[in-house]
Nucleic acid binder design. Sequence first.
DNA 1: TTGAGAACAACTCAATCTGAGAACAACTTA
DNA 2: TAAGTTGTTCTCAGATTGAGTTGTTCTCAA
Lengths: 245, 245
Amino acid sequence: MNEQDFLAGYDPRDYPAVAVTVDVVALTIREGALHLLLIRRAAPPYAGHWALPGGFVRPDEDLLAGARRELAEETGLGGERLGRVHLEQLGTYGDPDRDPRMRVVSIAHLAFAPDLPDPVADTDAADAIWLPVTALPNRQLAFDHARIIDDGLERARAKLEYTPLATRFLAPEFTVTELRAVYETVWGEPLHAGNFHRKVLSVPGFVESTGASTERGGARGGPRAKLYRPGTARLLHPALLRTLR
Amino acid sequence: MNEQDFLAGYDPRDYPAVAVTVDVVALTIREGALHLLLIRRAAPPYAGHWALPGGFVRPDEDLLAGARRELAEETGLGGERLGRVHLEQLGTYGDPDRDPRMRVVSIAHLAFAPDLPDPVADTDAADAIWLPVTALPNRQLAFDHARIIDDGLERARAKLEYTPLATRFLAPEFTVTELRAVYETVWGEPLHAGNFHRKVLSVPGFVESTGASTERGGARGGPRAKLYRPGTARLLHPALLRTLR
DNA sequence: TTGAGAACAACTCAATCTGAGAACAACTTA
DNA sequence: TAAGTTGTTCTCAGATTGAGTTGTTCTCAA
């Protein structure tokens, strides 16, 4: 049998039916707190429960594109603002019993977003909000989403150590203090301002100076801060290490 | 409609057919070189090409269990020796065109194995061998397996930095020099013996002494080396860093 | 207008860690 | 027995880190 014949005689229905979905753990920082995008499910199973935005992968759609589409639908955001969102694959969850309907394998993704507008509930979701991760309703999360969120948060904390992705939570131009606030928020611990400043400026390619400064000092005083933009490095060497874990 | 009715009326066939497979990037060290487990495909597509071991996920099988089963089938190994193999999820590959037959989403896994016997070709595979990664036939790899292998190798290199998984390439008891050889093989660069020794013994929980030493010195001379076994740490703090990347 | 407080940015300094090499004893093979 | 190899420990200069200080610029409120 040659390859031509083989493909012609191939019937996908011979194989066990598995549904493939993408889910998104979307993180942003609002008012100094780490927030997570959640929707409230309108339909069974888990109707009324909180869940990650997500849905079925379309037949001709790449996984990452599917995750980006779901994120766009749930946030109501178009291409421009979504373009500044970092999106990466987080992991795949395929426990045979994770969905009561059938076998569903879900490829979870992780998104780092600058402060975005409030999400727009669409037909799939009764409600959609940015929720502080400190207020997660662990008991009321659908499927295995509590575990996916845990994994996403741990991945986010780790990624700040060795990548410059913290800048993705900020505007295109930012101060060192704003960058430090991202680290403190995600890691949940205060950092030494002086040492952080020294470290950020010494790691090659982390940030580059714009030459400009903020228009005003801090809300409660202090001089105008210098402005930086993301550098060209994709990995930080040496990394910014959390001292304890 | 309550949840009961909903589940009863649910037809999986309403959803687009997607096949879900698991693949395994299995690494081991033989004769001082990093080797990868490959099979030669017997059936189309890509008949005659090299490919990663893998196959369809069974209906009631966890993803990791599926990967472990495929690895067992391909290596012909039973539970005992396979129990010492480290297996983790690597990433999911779901490009719509990656398989000419139909939409196939594959969850790739990464395995670290101590030196295993030669694999046994089964019905699926015309041939199965441990191949040195320096001799990879990039042009003759099936599907997107060249990229999966690249990702697996990079993950392996990174994992040695911050986890104690290098010990998984070794026997239950090993010397510091054998451990250093793992790092040198995977990273592809020589390391300073004295500094490596100091570092390994100073990282809490990386290795613990057995109190014993090897029966003989090295093959070409030198004193007997002390023996160690893996410690209890699951992460290395501080990490062993590659100096350049 | 001025004083108090805040915070950006730069600096200091001791403690620790790292890279490179040397020393030395214990072993091998020839 | 001699020559060479290797496991292990030590030394030391340079770099990095943690903690704190200083000086200046700014905001807010009296």
